[in-house]
Amino acid sequence: MASDNDRKTNGVFKGLLETGSGVVGKAMDKGSDVASAMMTHTAGLISKISDDIGAMADRILMMEERIGLMADRIIKTEELMAKLTATLANRNLDLSSSESMTEQALRPPLLSVSTTETARSLPPQIQITGNPNLYLLYVSASPALRDTDTVVSKIETSGDLQTAWKRSLTALAGTFEPSDQASPHGAVLTVAVRSVGENGQPSPLSNSVDVLVAEG
């Protein structure tokens, strides 16, 4: 039979086992709660980080759009500056060169003739300020240079002038107004010019000159 000491020892072990079992159970329950709380907290953090990453991605896209817009504006500004620089350079060139055809094309040239009387087969000897290489010759039966009574020709050489003069008189035949000049057998034509610059821009119309065209 077990002695009292054995029974006491068994009781102590039994108590210890029960206490240990309770502690372990509580520890497991507590650990489970802690693990659950940690998982919940971690899931919340992951969700928050995901939201932050999404917001950051949106901001990055917005920033890219702004950068793209700014780049377009920079390119446009550079184009405008380049055009402005070119314009200013051309203007400075015009101001520094009194013989520039661009400068001459912006203002009406001055027309003069060596004589105010000529023949049908001989064009008047004309002088134009700036001596343009290219100009438009206006020959009209009307001092007002009406479109219906005016022939316009492009002149680049003296041969062009000769041809244009004959062509103009042929086109205006029958429209000459009687002359009140000294010659009873002539007609008065009005002559004017426009100089043409290197850029192809014609100047305003020059002063007009009346020329007596003698018969023959």
Score class of each variant (00 low, 15 high):
Asn92Cys: 00
Asp94Tyr: 07
Asp94Ile: 13
Leu95Glu: 02
Leu95Lys: 03
Leu95Ile: 01
Leu95Ser: 03
Ser96Gly: 01
Ser96Asn: 01
Ser96Asp: 10
Ser97Ile: 11
Glu99Ser: 12
Ser100Trp: 01
Ser100Thr: 01
Ser100Met: 00
Thr102Met: 12
Thr102Ser: 09
Thr102Trp: 15
Gln104Trp: 14
Gln104Tyr: 11
Gln104Ile: 10
Gln104Val: 09
Gln104Lys: 14
Ala105Glu: 01
Ala105Tyr: 04
Ala105Thr: 00
Ala105Lys: 00
Leu106Ser: 12
Leu106Cys: 02
Leu106Met: 07
Leu106Pro: 00
Leu106Gly: 13
Arg107Asp: 05
Arg107Val: 15
Pro108His: 03
Pro108Ile: 09
Pro109Cys: 04
Pro109Ser: 09
Leu110Thr: 12
Leu110Tyr: 11
Leu110Asn: 10
Leu111Phe: 04
Leu111Tyr: 07
Leu111Met: 11
Ser112Gly: 14
Ser112Glu: 06
Val113Ala: 11
Val113Met: 05
Val113Leu: 15
Val113Ile: 11
Val113Glu: 14
Ser114Gly: 05
Ser114Leu: 07
Thr115Lys: 15
Thr115Gln: 06
Thr115Ala: 14
Thr116Arg: 15
Glu117Leu: 08
Glu117Cys: 02
Glu117Asp: 04
Arg120Ser: 13
Ser121Met: 05
Ser121His: 14
Ser121Gly: 08
Ser121Ile: 13
Leu122Phe: 00
Leu122Met: 08
Leu122Glu: 06
Pro123Cys: 01
Pro123Asn: 07
Pro123Leu: 06
Pro124Leu: 03
Gln125Trp: 07
Gln125Lys: 12
Gln127His: 08
Gln127Lys: 15
Thr129Ser: 15
Thr129Asn: 05
Gly130Trp: 02
Gly130Ile: 01
Asn131Ser: 05
Asn133Met: 04
Asn133Ile: 13
Asn133Trp: 13
Asn133Gln: 14
Asn133Gly: 13
